[in-house]
Design a protein around this nucleic acid. Structure first.
Lengths: 298, 298
DNA sequence: CTGACTGCTGCATTTTTTGCATCGGTTTGC
DNA sequence: GCAAACCGATGCAAAAAATGCAGCAGTCAG
């Protein structure tokens, strides 16, 4: 929207932390950008940024302004989406922030399904750890977030949640493949691969390790489930994943999954969230409803 | 605010019902205004107004837009007020919609008191009947409303209410002046002046007249309490008013007031309201708090 | 001290907005 | 049934605003 350019520019400065950097990203000169900022500060009667030797930082007034800017911009998005809906075009854009587990199966399937009905809707899928996903909601860079065991912020509103029992992921020929569910002590002695700390699965495993005396031999750590999932084809590694991130059938890619006994590792929850108090654009709201339904009835 | 001009222009068109009329009020040419509108419609992908032979009317999309415009404009007002607060200037503007009863004593006193502490804050006081006051909140032309016995709309949020027993207003030398409280039948035979229908006092009196067999001789009707209040100096007329609209002492202006018996005329309530879900600008919120306090502890 | 970075500003140029005049259309009054 | 009075839309030239360019002063790391 034309009339929001100044607001978008200021948002860009806030994100870039520097007028010149922001100007480069926006493909305009720093002088033009600087003048828009000065004009805004003139109108507000207070500086929006503190000038530092190495760039700028939001002033207290700027913090208020940037919040207004983001809600106003996304409100306009919402309006446009509503109007498109009114005209019958049903177009829009949905930005999703999610945990890794959603990437291989759930989101590709759900987005494709949604787009079959509404081909004019575009999607953005952004991998974010638990904290960053919530931050993305707050700064409006995501409309909805799907996260496992999130750090609960008061600004986030939970639309629905589904329990997810952590599963061990093993090569098909692993000695433990015979068992239907695994205790933590079963894993003792086998090489283990773990996700790095910010992730929910690791969080639950860590809790279990603290409560138990079982010693796990942690061979590999990675922030990529993709890596951990494919590693066992080289060495018989045991790693962990929640059901949503696993293929529906055993044996695909030469791996199988076995749920961990809930006495060892508590069942976590996968949460579908949005920013509290925000009315989502039509497309995002409808997609969230579809996703919610599919998560509850897998 | 500079970047809101287009929005303000479109709001002006919506209020004026015609591009040319709005252009005149805005002191610009109709062509300039028309082009801004066309540009906006282009960006939205839908017409904002239906073109009628005698002007324009909001389209469904326009209804959505105008609502967004008004909240955005008042959100910016709020931001500016907050920033001014931050800078320590404490300035702002408070628009009040109120019943007639508030005009002579309550509001002048309260506004003057507020302005003693915050001289940079300006006020707008708008006389509105019960329905119009609530409409003023909805379209953001008022920040707060003080009304007697309002028609309750779901969009309105009550901040506080105080009971107000309807009083009869008589000349000091009226035969009924001896009594401390008056029954409706006491008034039978004396000439009566009544406010016109949209007002709350009239509403309560009408209810009382329906329930009772007493015949009142209605001599004068007026939509001005000011007129009714001063009429008795010419002819011994009995009229009605709520305590908030009466001088604190009897005998001022040659009139006295006597409460009506609550068995005849039910006690009404004076309501202090704002638009539901709206966060008021700092100045309006503080003034509302002061007003609320003074109404509860008269 | 140098070099790289920052935000800011004067001036010429480009882009956008505005005003003026006018067109085509519908309603209203006689 | 015709003229006058509105209405919104548009081409064109003038006015206003935004932009790019170049260069300023200041800070900081090495």
């Amino acid at each position: 929207m034309r009339y929001l350019t100044s607001l978008g520019y200021i948002d860009a400065i806030a994100r870039a932390g520097s007028i010149r950097k922001a100007a480069e990203q926006l493909s305009i000169t720093s002088s033009a950008l600087n003048r828009r900022l000065l004009a805004m500060e003139e109108e507000l009667g207070a500086p929006v940024f503190e000038r530092l030797p190495r760039g700028v930082r939001l002033s207290p007034a700027g913090e208020l302004l940037i919040q207004l800017i983001r809600t106003q911009v996304s409100d306009v998005e919402k309006l446009k989406s509503q109007i498109a809906d009114l005209v019958g075009e049903r177009r829009g854009h949905v930005a999703v922030a999610c945990s890794q587990a959603l990437l291989p199966y759930v989101l590709p399937e759900q987005i494709a399904r949604y787009r079959r009905d509404h081909p004019a809707v575009t999607f953005g899928v952004h991998l974010r750890d638990r904290a960053a996903a919530e931050q993305a909601l707050v700064d409006h860079s995501a409309d909805i977030a799907v996260v496992f065991e999130p750090i609960r912020l008061s600004e986030v509103q939970v639309l629905s949640s589904v329990p997810q029992t952590v599963c061990a992921v093993l090569p098909v020929d692993h000695p433990l493949a015979a068992k239907q569910t695994l205790r933590l002590r079963d894993l003792s002695g086998y090489p283990i691969g773990l996700p790095t700390t910010p992730y929910g699965v690791r969080h639950l495993i860590d809790i279990a390790r603290q409560r138990s005396t079982v010693e796990l031999s942690i061979t590999v750590e990675s922030d990529s489930f993709e890596f951990l999932r494919h590693y066992p084809s080289q060495e018989p590694l045991v790693t962990f994943q929640i059901p949503a991130g696993l293929p529906s059938k055993d044996g695909v890619d030469g791996i199988i999954s076995r749920p961990l006994d809930v006495r060892d590792v508590p069942t976590g929850n996968l949460y579908l969230c949005q920013l509290r108090g925000r009315t989502l654009p039509v497309a995002a709201a409808k997609f969230a409803m579809q996703l919610e339904k599919s998560l509850l009835e897998p």
